[in-house]
Amino acid sequence: MIRLLLLGFLLLPASVQGYSLSPQQIAPGVYMFEGATEHFTRDNKGDIANTGFIVGEDGVLVFDTGPSRNYGQSMRLAIATVTDKPVVAVYVSHHHPDHFLGNQAFGDVPIHALEHTIETIRRDGDAVTDSLYRLVGTPMAGTEPVEPGELVTLGRQTVAGRDIELIAAGGHGGDGHADLMLLDHASGVLFAGDLVFHERAPTTPNAELGQWHDALDRIEELDFRVLVPGHGPPARGPEPVQQTRDYLRWLEEHLHEAAAAGLDAAEVMYLDLPDRFQHMGVLEQEYRRSVAHLYPDIERATLRDVREP
């Protein structure tokens, strides 16, 4: 028993520090934590998504909380190395587990999200947490899904003295307003969430591709100077938007062509992928997942009712 207790004490600080997050300044007062352009593994501790924070006059705004309680706690420690101002608001981009499972570490702060995000976390939170425990293991210790308590107020507003705009779109997290973006007007930094991927193949488990394309068009019209994608390195131009659009367009066309040729889903998973996407992280893995997500509906449209009485 004592050994167990001791073990607990020894492990606790180590596991919090396990993430060793260091803030990357991308504009005055604006920082991000860049995740690996990989899939969830034990080695990367689930740290595969980008999160960030903005230091305002009288407080700090946080965008996304990462994959685990430990990650969220590491974020707070790292934020404290930059400023002693308190975190006053957290915004969660969407319901995928790599973006919200650090919520527990912000239990003392209002957590804002879209209705779709709140409802989906309420419904699926336990299941996605279970699957992350399975994929990531020990770094998940103590993590439980925490539903955001505040419905986000959209539009331009001043929070903690910062002139920010909260923008709802959809297409990645699901149908309708399922993806939240945050634009910081003073610095021109846009936290785009998973509507934008960069140097990493997009994920499509809840994708509505038409809406996703609309969202990408809208992002290009926004007045941003620095773009923080949901996954992959930040950029000072629209290149990640173009990359995401190019991949999603290709994916959809490619799957329609495969269905028109009568290919079976498992055959489609093993087709060769274009050279121009080979630099993207986890390309094959995400492509195969996308076949599983998108192909069944696309191939159904190639079949006709042949039932006989």
Partner: peptide, 8 residues
Amino acid sequence: GEVDAALW
């Protein structure tokens, strides 16, 4: 009992 199909 619905049957959908196609030949290529």
